[in-house]
């Protein structure tokens, strides 16, 4: 018994303390989402009466088009997730398997470009998209399609590191055999690589979904109309006034918005952890 204590007690204490630290804000949000007074306060750690008023506000109040925000977020992130993985997979395949001049230079340039603080190109992006808006009002500043295009601009750089690792893990013998049988690079790509990598591509695309869902600054710059906003921007603007009465609906809203992301994350944990050690940092 004492030996068990000596060996394991500190482990449990550390685990419990850190779990409490991890849970504390999350528990508070859940608590205040069911609390009608709606501030991030602890009236008591055990809820006295559970009220769904904040959730009702979220779905009925006209000032908060929450469902539209959720829909926007899911649509934008979903679209970017799919297209960016298509672009990224093709590039990763080419970088991994094809021989061509300037490959090393290309990958170094890509790495370098990624190091430029993207936020600081904001004003330039704004100017460009303002001009695009003049001749194509569906694509420029203030539109979701414009935002999606800008996100896709980064698609090649962001996913390629993750994908490259996965591509390298697919044995090269397979596509070498295809090559000997007379398959072109395109055929190898579509008939050998894509079917083999399909599960991996799905994972990467879900990661890209999480990343886009989390993006804030560009979405804030682009989505001016309340109806076009993503859930992150919408909720941030909503509590921007710092009125305590808004915290209840905010808490409810952030819980609902987080659920899909947390579920995706937890179900992908295995892949994400192996991706982490390969040198990526989640944004």
């Amino acid at each position: 018994m004492t030996r068990w204590l000596k060996e394991n007690l500190w482990r449990h204490i550390t685990g419990v303390v850190m779990c409490l630290f991890a849970l504390f804000p999350l528990y508070l949000v859940v608590l205040s989402s069911f609390n009608e007074s709606g501030s991030l306060q602890v009236t008591s750690f055990i809820p006295k009466d559970i009220s769904f008023a904040n959730y009702k506000v979220l779905f009925n109040d006209e000032r908060i088009p929450y469902l539209t925000w959720m829909k926007n977020s899911l649509m934008i992130s979903g679209f970017v997730a799919i297209v960016s993985v298509i672009i990224g997979a093709a590039s990763a395949f080419a970088f991994s398997r094809l021989r061509f001049k300037g490959k090393r230079f290309g990958i170094q340039l890509l790495l370098l470009i990624q190091m430029f603080p993207a936020i600081l190109a904001l004003s330039a992006l704004y100017v460009i998209m303002e001009r695009v808006y003049k001749f194509a009002p569906g694509l420029g500043i203030g539109t979701q399609m414009g935002l999606v295009l800008v996100y896709l601009g980064g698609a090649m750089g962001v996913n390629i590191w993750l994908l490259k690792g996965f591509v390298d893990s697919i044995p090269a013998e397979l596509d070498e055999a295809a090559k000997i049988d007379g398959a072109s690079a395109m055929q190898t790509y579509w008939q050998i690589f894509v079917p083999l990598a399909a599960p991996v591509l799905a994972v990467v695309s879900l990661l890209s979904f999480i990343g886009t869902f989390n993006e804030f600054i560009l979405a804030r710059l682009f989505l001016i109309e309340v109806e076009t906003r993503t859930v992150a921007v919408g909720l941030q603007q909503f509590i921007g006034g710092q009125f305590s009465e808004n915290w209840g609906p905010f808490a409810a809203g952030s819980i609902i918005a987080s659920i899909p992301i947390v579920i995706i994350f937890l179900s992908l944990q295995k892949y994400i952890v192996s991706g982490l050690t390969a040198g990526s940092v989640k944004g």
Binding site: A22, A232, S254, S258, F265, L266
Partner: peptide, 15 residues
């Protein structure tokens, strides 16, 4: 323990 990491960070920061 992974929950803070799984949460969308924008939401966590605002909370």
């Amino acid at each position: 323990l992974v929950l803070p990491y799984a949460m969308p960070s924008v939401m966590s920061i605002l909370i």
